[in-house]
Amino acid sequence: EDDHHMEFCRVCKDGGELLCCDTCPSSYHIHCLNPPLPEIPNGEWLCPRCTCP
């Protein structure tokens, strides 16, 4: 699979289990988001950068 997502968290710059945005290459740990997510959501997810007006 050709995955163009970042291999590190945009916030802390560390790797591991990352949540990938469905519209851009950004990846995040769920605990690095503000507010943090309790678990990885099902379905499409947009990062804070893509949901800002």
Rank of each mutant, 00 (worst) to 15 (best):
H4K: 15
D14W: 04
K13W: 08
H31V: 10
C50E: 02
V11M: 12
S27P: 03
C21V: 00
I30A: 12
P36S: 09
C9Q: 02
R10T: 13
E17P: 02
E39D: 05
C50G: 02
P35M: 05
T51M: 09
T23S: 11
C52K: 15
H5T: 13
N34I: 10
S27L: 11
T23I: 11
S27V: 11
C47R: 02
C20K: 14
E44A: 10
I40S: 12
P41F: 11
K13Q: 12
E17W: 03
I40Q: 12
H5M: 09
S26G: 13
R10M: 05
C50P: 01
V11S: 08
T23R: 13
G43D: 08
M6E: 15
K13Y: 05
P48K: 04
D2A: 14
G16W: 00
C20T: 15
E44S: 12
P48H: 05
P48R: 05
P41R: 08
G15A: 08
C21K: 01
I30H: 09
N34M: 08
D3A: 06
C24D: 01
H31E: 11
E1I: 06
C52N: 08
R49D: 15
G15V: 09
H5V: 08
E39R: 10
L46N: 15
N34Q: 08
S27H: 10
Y28R: 04
R10P: 06
P38R: 11
V11Y: 05
I40M: 09
R49C: 11
C52F: 05
C21Y: 01
P36I: 07
P38Q: 14
M6S: 08
N42F: 06
D3V: 07
K13A: 14
T51H: 07
C50I: 00
H29D: 01
P48V: 03
D22W: 06
D22L: 10
T51C: 08
L33Y: 01
C9M: 00
L37V: 10
L37Q: 08
K13P: 00
C52V: 13
S26Y: 09
D3F: 15
R49T: 13
L33K: 03
N42K: 14
D3H: 14
D2G: 15
P25R: 13
W45V: 04
E44W: 04
C47G: 02
G15D: 06
C9S: 01
E1K: 03
R10W: 15
L46R: 12
C47W: 01
P41D: 05
Y28W: 06
C32A: 00
G43V: 10
L18C: 01
C32S: 01
L19W: 04
C20D: 12
I40R: 15
P53S: 04
C32Q: 05
C52G: 15
P36T: 07
E39M: 09
P36K: 14
P35A: 05
P41T: 09
N42E: 13
E7S: 05
W45M: 04
H4Y: 14
E44V: 08
P35L: 04
P38S: 10
N34T: 12
C32M: 00
R10G: 05
C47F: 01
G16R: 04
C12D: 01
D14T: 09
F8A: 09
